[in-house]
């Protein structure tokens, strides 16, 4: 299994488990965008902790995914970018203009804040009355 896309209440948690080539990466992007519509998700977590290389194509694909998701009414957070990979992205000159957090937990917390007010309210993760 190369990737998994799991529904978690209002959120989607999409994880990449191994190196993807360009075609697989594009299919993954497409699948996530399709699922957003299917599940009416408000937020998407993309877990890239398993990727040892994110080159210009990979970065662009992730940025595009976030952009497309926004058009579909969902916020996207990329989580788990490895320190070496982050360094390479900067050296390469990429500007990964998306929300990012260190790990899944922080990613979910950020999504909660980003989507506050637009939620349907039956998140398995969101604490009841979290709207404050």
């Amino acid at each position: 299994m190369l990737v998994s896309i799991l529904r978690q209440g209002d959120f989607l948690i999409a994880s990449i488990h191994t190196a993807l080539d360009d075609t697989e990466m594009e299919r993954f992007r497409q699948d996530v965008v399709t699922r957003i519509g299917q599940f009416r998700s408000r937020g998407v977590i993309i877990d890239v902790a398993a990727l040892d290389v994110i080159d210009s194509f990979g970065s662009r694909c992730l940025a595009d995914l976030a952009h497309m998701a926004r058009f579909r009414g969902a916020q996207t957070v990329i989580v788990g970018i490895q320190p070496d990979v982050a360094f390479a992205i900067v050296q390469l000159g990429m500007d990964l203009d998306v929300h990012t957090t260190l790990d899944l937990e922080e990613g979910l917390a950020l999504l909660e804040r980003l989507t506050a007010g637009s939620r349907t309210g039956h998140s398995a993760i969101g604490v009841l009355g979290d709207d404050r």
Binding site: D52, V53, D55, P83, A88
Partner: peptide, 17 residues
């Protein structure tokens, strides 16, 4: 080292693409 490995494989990825 780890960081250099990532830099090298990223560069190879770009050039192979």
């Amino acid at each position: 080292s780890g960081t250099d490995l990532t830099l090298i494989s990223t560069a190879v990825s770009e050039i192979a693409r």
